[in-house]
Amino acid sequence: MADIHVEEFYKDVAIALVQLYGAFPRRVNLFVEDIAGPDEPDEFGLHSKRHMACFGALLWLEEEGLLRYVDTIRQEALDQAVLSHAAFVRLSAPAPVELNRRLNQDQAHAGDHLPPSVQEDLSTHIHLIRKALKTGHSGRISQVVQATFFADDKH
């Protein structure tokens, strides 16, 4: 089992990517509270570790070339964020067949009767990320995000 902060990182990344993909190509403000949940700064105005970890994950996505933004809004949001070309292409690409099979074991052959174009849409990385988020299972979310961005770049 991964450390909790790593699992939260994967979940934060997944939520941010889904939000940005859903708005693409529009630029949107990406709010930490929409990703990590509400946060009340302490008496000194400092955010919680959880809030700052999420904010750090968003900054990391930019540093790794997965998104762009114009500015930060304090430590609350990224102003005018948009997916990078590389992130958009990767999220839109079909995931490896073995990953699709592993994540869809409970629905084996359910998609066999769908038109090929629908089957193709359901096999993309972004669809698998959305599906993993719906389950709420941190291991599945971690697995899908890792497969999307941190696996070898053979496709």
Rank of each mutant, 00 (worst) to 15 (best):
H127C: 14
E76T: 07
H109S: 05
D79G: 01
Q119V: 10
G45L: 02
R74L: 12
D79P: 05
V144C: 03
A23R: 08
A93E: 11
V6C: 07
L66T: 05
Q119C: 02
L99P: 01
S142N: 02
A110C: 05
E40T: 02
H47E: 05
F149S: 06
P41Q: 05
H137T: 04
H155A: 07
Q19M: 12
A147N: 03
F88S: 10
L20K: 03
Q75A: 09
A110D: 01
N29P: 02
V145H: 08
H51T: 00
L66G: 09
G56W: 10
D79W: 15
D106I: 15
V97Q: 05
V13G: 01
F9Y: 11
A14Q: 08
A147W: 09
S117A: 13
V144G: 07
H47R: 15
F44Q: 09
M52T: 06
D112H: 14
A132T: 02
D152F: 02
I4N: 11
L30C: 13
D153Q: 13
T72C: 03
V118F: 13
K134N: 11
P116V: 05
N100E: 10
A132I: 07
F9L: 09
K154Q: 07
P94N: 12
N29V: 00
V13A: 11
R26N: 14
H109E: 13
A108H: 01
S117L: 10
L83N: 09
F44I: 03
D106H: 15
K131G: 04
V89G: 12
K134R: 15
Q107F: 10
L67H: 10
T124N: 00
S142G: 04
K134S: 15
V70R: 14
L20N: 04
A110Q: 12
V118H: 13
V97C: 05
A53V: 04
L66C: 08
S142R: 04
I35W: 04
K131S: 07
F44H: 01
C54H: 08
K49M: 10
R101K: 12
V82E: 06
L20V: 00
E98Y: 15
F9A: 13
D121G: 06
D39P: 10
K154N: 06
A86R: 03
A23F: 13
A23S: 14
A93P: 00
Q75F: 09
E43G: 04
A16S: 15
E64S: 14
E98S: 11
T124V: 03
E43M: 09
H155T: 05
R90W: 11
K49L: 14
L91N: 07
F149G: 04
A14I: 01
V145G: 01
N100Q: 11
K131P: 08
D3N: 12
Q107L: 12
F9H: 11
A108K: 12
G45F: 05
D42C: 06
